[in-house]
């Protein structure tokens, strides 16, 4: 015979099952529809955008920089549409100065894209690895492909705002400055060219930093790697390409983007012999996009295999 438990262990609780009736708060299983697992990447994309929008230095600062570039370039374009200005400025140029504003502005938009890569892009995966953020994703019905796709899409949208909206605005302004209908029709392709150049830049500045963010477990390390590669390795490639007159400069991301843009707009920039032929520029951009996404996929998939979760 056992003694009654309540007398033996006054501090021990009774088994929880016997107290179920006390707490009937009407908690019910979720029986509503669930969003298909294949759409989870969109949730991650939206979260990437909303977190980037928080604070002044992540997306708003580079976006403000892009806006300033657009406004300044737009003002210059407006002033340069003056005929007297054109007569002076077109010497040594392959096209009308105002037509050149759109491609030339891409050099500056690339800088804004680089700033965004430093404030957000190059630390995305490393930040999640450092903070244990993977846990929140992969303890839920999220696959590695959803994660990579969502992060990339979020970055691409944000980078597009920086690198695509400005050139499109300038292209539209250029169309608005057309003096005749025939000139307007002739200038219409400028919109498409600006969109292509902006999209190429957005792809490159979204994918490659994302890949670098996958190379480290700490945010600062990932940022340092990306900044080092972009500023030092890129400059070395560009310099060697300039000295040897080879397309090695295509490995420098801004050179690849500006080269592609200049070729699209038929700009002959005599002062920039490091400009690489169009196929090399396209090849380098595609290669970097593939490398960036590949690194991100490799890291996330590898982390899943070896076990994720838990802050260090």
């Amino acid at each position: 015979m056992s003694a009654p438990e309540t007398n033996i262990t006054p501090t021990a609780p009774a088994p929880t099952r016997s107290t179920a009736a006390i707490y009937d708060l009407g908690y019910k299983r979720y029986v509503g529809n669930r969003v298909a697992a294949s759409a989870r990447w969109r949730v991650i994309m939206r979260n990437q955008l909303s977190t980037a929008w928080k604070g002044w230095w992540r997306l708003k600062f580079p976006l403000g920089t892009a806006l300033m570039i657009s406004l300044v370039a737009g003002a210059v374009m407006y002033v340069s549409s003056n005929k007297l200005f054109n007569a002076i400025a077109s010497k040594g140029m392959g096209l009308k100065f105002s037509d050149g504003i759109v491609p030339f502005s891409m050099t500056f938009f690339a800088r804004a894209g680089f700033i965004f890569s430093l404030t957000v892009g190059a630390s995305v995966i490393a930040s999640d690895a450092q903070s244990g953020g993977f846990t929140f994703y992969f303890a839920r019905p999220v696959r590695p492909i959803d994660y990579v796709l969502g992060k990339f899409a979020g970055l691409l949208l944000a980078t597009s705002l920086i690198m695509m909206a400005g050139p499109l605005f300038l292209a539209a302004e250029r169309l608005g400055l057309a003096e005749t209908t025939s000139e307007l029709i002739d200038l219409l392709p400028v919109l498409g060219k600006a969109a292509i150049a902006g999209l190429a830049g957005a792809l490159l500045y979204a994918a490659l930093p994302l890949g670098f963010s996958a190379l480290a477990n700490k945010r600062r390390t990932a940022l340092a790697l990306w900044a080092g590669a972009y500023l030092i390795a890129g400059s070395i490639c560009s310099g060697i390409g300039l000295l040897t007159n080879t397309p090695l400069g295509a490995l420098d991301p801004p050179t690849a983007i500006t080269s592609l843009t200049f070729h699209l707009f038929d700009v002959e920039w005599k002062g920039r012999s490091a400009m690489v032929p169009m196929p090399y520029a396209i090849g380098a951009i595609l290669m970097y996009v593939v490398i960036g996404l590949g690194l991100a996929w490799w890291r996330v998939n590898n982390s899943r295999s070896t076990g994720v979760g838990g802050a260090p």
Partner: peptide, 26 residues
């Protein structure tokens, strides 16, 4: 999970609703 680090810049509502959507809640 054991660690309490999250997306600190989000509000509690933003974080929890984000994680709800990750779990399939429309």
């Amino acid at each position: 999970p054991e660690h309490e680090k999250t997306y600190d810049e989000l509000t509690a509502l933003e974080l929890v609703s984000f994680l709800a959507r990750l779990s399939g809640v429309p």
